[in-house]
């Protein structure tokens, strides 16, 4: 199973990985991206979500998504 789907995430951005016991916190932008990835949304759909929820341009949102995905890879969550 995709590790992302195993994560316990609350509304405040607290993330717990039950496989490793690691916990993380993320800001609202990261939370939106995480929820989008877990819902198997495409990057362009997540860009739309970010632009709708935050005052951000699509190119900035796309960069945020790529950066965040790198962070998830670093933690072996994807």
């Amino acid at each position: 199973m995709n590790r992302l789907h195993q994560l316990a995430i609350n509304d405040e951005g607290f993330v717990f990985d039950p496989t490793t016991g690691e916990s993380f916190t993320t800001n609202p932008t990261g939370l939106t991206i995480l929820q989008g990835l877990r819902a198997q949304k495409s990057p362009s759909q997540i860009v739309e979500d970010l632009c709708a929820d935050f005052e951000v341009q699509p190119e900035d949102a796309e960069r945020d998504i790529n950066d965040f995905i790198d962070v998830l890879r670093t933690h072996k969550l994807i």
């Binding site: 717990f16 039950p18 496989t19 490793t20 016991g21 690691e22 916990s23």
Partner: peptide
């Protein structure tokens, strides 16, 4: 479990349950 905080003797002080298949 994962030990989150251990003493200088390496004994668990805080920990969390995990399910690592």
């Amino acid at each position: 479990i994962k030990k989150m905080w251990i003493t200088s003797l390496g004994k668990i002080w805080t920990g969390v349950t995990i399910k690592n298949e």
